[in-house]
Design a protein around this nucleic acid. Structure first.
Lengths: 208, 208
DNA sequence: ACTGTCAGTGTACGAGTGTTCACTGAGAGG
DNA sequence: CCTCTCAGTGAACACTCGTACACTGACAGT
């Protein structure tokens, strides 16, 4: 079963266990309210051993942010993959988002919490990553037909609106866990909102 | 100066001091990470005296939520007051929002944090209050001309989108404190987003 | 003037906190 | 084989934490 246990491999395994433990504890509390000792107890190591892997809880938080956004990036790739048929781009985007929220529930929960309440460094990093998403979306939108008359500024503004709506949708879905009817309604709402925004976009002229 | 100090008045004064202290401490941390003793020290009372006013930190949190949303309600009234001239309703709404964010910075900061990371009871209450705002906005929108063809569901969806965007704007402005140029840009972005949504709304037909 | 109420005090407790330090012992490299 | 590295140990430190308890003394009602 667990035969080849090299030294570095063992260390990496413990590191993972620490990350998972912190993620699990973040379910019920904030990172700022989690103690190094709680994490250590959950992992099954002595508190001081924690320092072999991270300098502080804050550093652990930054590592978790990296991890969470790495999985978000694969989500974006999933959305872009395949046809850019404008007709069902909305349905496709929303359903991929919902799938990822379910598949990476802990990560989304962590980001949602720490975005507002995490240590300053963690908050800044999350804000920065979300900003990167907006920029990516912006260049994607620029490739769409009908956006010729748009100024780059307006494209950015639109991207921000869409990303904000999707972040909000993800957070709502998280808090609707275990109530499939509520979730279904939220998904339908997200679809409608995207369509509304799209209708607005198609009738928009920059510098009106 | 401080002549008429009746008993109940003294108590109320201490209660206010506790609320203010908690609000101030929330600037740098989450309610869940704030200790009863920190609050007591800041107020200048002994820790056990805290219980004369609140059963727990959570109860304090709920009181703060009530207070914060009371001031938000006056904001809504400010927006509604006066002419419903559709032309400058956007500019008016945004500028009132910005004014209130500046005038009640601590309250907005508190809500933004606790909305995502507060104790469950506090989170639920905030969510509920925001939902009430959406409903209010929904009935306001229904009074606007051109919404005849709208279904009540779509009105709710649109309200949610607008409220979400405004909440996000408020949070962004909070984190842009001390950088007037960034704030100016955010305000302009909020205006543009509302206009985009409005354009979408005017071209919308329910059940397309 | 006498008395009851009650906001605030002071002490004490057991439990949990981050961080230090010297340590152990299994795996890696020569 | 023998040494070096280093993930994890365990005791000890000087705190902070929430809460229980008996208390004081100024105000309010009679």
């Amino acid at each position: 079963m667990t035969e080849p246990v090299s030294r570095v491999e063992r260390k990496e395994r413990t590191r993972r266990a620490i990350l998972d433990a912190a993620l699990e504890l973040s379910d019920e509390s904030t990172l700022a309210a989690i103690s190094l000792r709680q994490v250590a107890k959950q992992v099954g190591i002595v508190p001081t051993a924690f320092y072999r892997h991270f300098d502080s809880i804050d550093a652990l938080g930054l590592a978790l942010v990296d991890e969470a956004f790495a999985s978000l990036r694969t989500m974006m790739r999933d959305i872009r993959r395949g046809d850019p048929a404008l007709a069902d781009i909305v349905d496709r985007s929303v359903s991929v988002l919902v799938d990822h929220v379910h598949g990476h529930r802990a990560h989304f929960l962590f980001i949602a919490r720490e975005r507002a309440a995490g240590p300053p460094g963690v908050r800044d990093e999350i804000r920065h990553q979300i900003e990167l998403f907006e920029r990516e979306l912006s260049t994607d939108l620029a490739r769409l037909p009908g956006t010729d008359t748009w100024s780059p500024e307006d494209l950015g503004v639109l991207s921000n609106l869409i990303v904000t709506a999707m972040v909000s949708t993800a957070e709502s879905i998280l808090s609707a866990a275990g109530r499939p009817d509520v979730e279904k309604q939220l998904v339908e709402q997200a679809r409608t909102q995207l369509r509304m925004v799209l209708v607005g976009a198609l009738n928009w002229r920059s510098k009106p």
